[in-house]
């Protein structure tokens, strides 16, 4: 095992996959500037700076994928994705189907998002649910350095277009990473980060941390919380979620993206349709507000579900409501 940051894990995954397969290319605004060592080792042909024009960056990745390469395109920040939406949603997501399966689009589009940089709504907007809704795409949003590395490697080897979201707030977080280069994490498998019996917490990206902190605090109150990190939003690991809900009978879904038609709504629907008999209480969703991200540090953090709110929700679910928990939860 090696200790590294999320940023280092992403870089290592790119290096290993470029080593593994000569068809893998990296392109985007600044990738050749940022990854000098990859340019030196794999050549300027395979590590390409692009114009700052997201529509053509994504479209070029789509064309290159259909043409036999395996591009990774760095689109920088999620709010820039709407510029590349036609290439990702109409081309990458649909042309395989429309062509009757004649073409594949093995490509990865990466983008950073989430609170942590205090630069406001046009660099921080969690758009992952939009892409989950688009057919033909896969969507990943990991939380640990090991998952960033293993899932990015698996995404690059996948035959389908994958959106790979990088939670900005996790970029410098450290963790243990398997040293072996052939260690992949399959898409579509959630990870149980902590086992528990009273309540299931389902989350992804930075709010997995809030759930883990909450679970630790709840221990003191004899509440045992299970924490599931989805990491792959599409395909979704329904079985891991349902198995846990069937055991605990209580479900809290937590994410930073806003709630309406979001991933939490889908998880709640999953529990309601496939584990209704096991539910002992209504499903609780803790999400960001239906508001653009603010840039003030205080307001930015106020838009992210924190451990305190998760604790309050779990206490209410397991033990019943108090004035205090109502007050805390009203904030979200």
């Amino acid at each position: 095992m090696t200790r590294m940051t999320v940023e280092q894990a992403i870089h290592q995954a790119l290096r290993e996959e470029m080593e593994h397969d000569p068809r893998v290319i990296l392109m985007g605004e600044g990738v050749a500037t940022k990854h000098r060592d990859l340019v030196e080792d794999f050549g300027a042909e395979r590590v390409r700076n692009t114009p700052l024009a997201e529509a053509i960056m994504a479209g070029t990745a789509v064309g290159a994928a259909a043409g036999g390469l395996r591009p990774v395109v760095d689109l920088l920040f999620a709010p820039f994705l709407p510029y590349s939406m036609d290439a990702l949603v109409n081309s990458a997501g649909k042309l395989r189907y429309i062509s009757g399966g004649q073409f594949s689009f093995p490509m990865v589009a990466m983008a950073m998002t989430g609170a942590g940089w205090a630069v406001g709504a046009q660099h921080n907007h969690n758009l992952e649910a939009m892409f989950v809704h688009a057919p033909g795409l896969k969507v990943l949003m990991p939380s640990t350095p090991a998952d960033f590395r293993g899932l990015l490697k698996a995404a690059i080897r996948d035959e389908n277009p994958v959106l790979f979201f990088i939670d900005l707030g996790l970029l410098h977080q450290e963790g243990e990473v398997e040293a072996r280069a052939d260690e992949l994490i399959p898409l579509g498998q959630a990870a149980v980060r902590r086992e528990g019996t009273h309540v299931t917490m389902v989350s992804y990206a930075k709010t997995v941390g809030a759930c883990l902190q909450a679970a630790e605090q709840l221990e003191a109150r004899q509440i045992s919380a299970e924490v599931i990190d989805l990491r792959s939003l599409k395909p979704l690991d329904e079985e891991t979620v349902l198995a846990s809900v069937r055991r605990t009978g209580r479900l809290i879904v937590v994410h930073e993206a806003s709630g309406l038609c979001g991933v939490a709504a889908e998880i709640a629907a999953l529990a309601a349709t496939k584990a209704f008999d096991a539910l002992r209480a209504p499903v609780v969703r803790l999400t960001g507000p239906d508001a653009p991200a603010a840039s003030s540090w205080v307001l930015e953090q106020a838009g992210v579900p924190q451990a305190e709110a998760v604790v309050a929700a779990a206490v209410e679910l397991v033990l019943g409501t108090s004035e205090h928990t109502r007050a805390v939860m009203a904030h979200y």
């Binding site: 994504a58 789509v62 994928a65 043409g67």
Partner: peptide, 18 residues
């Protein structure tokens, strides 16, 4: 849409994939 994909297809060609 065709214009957005054309440079990538031509890049694949240039890089020996056609």
């Amino acid at each position: 849409g065709e214009l957005s994909m054309a440079p990538g297809m031509a890049l694949a060609q240039k890089m020996g994939r056609g």
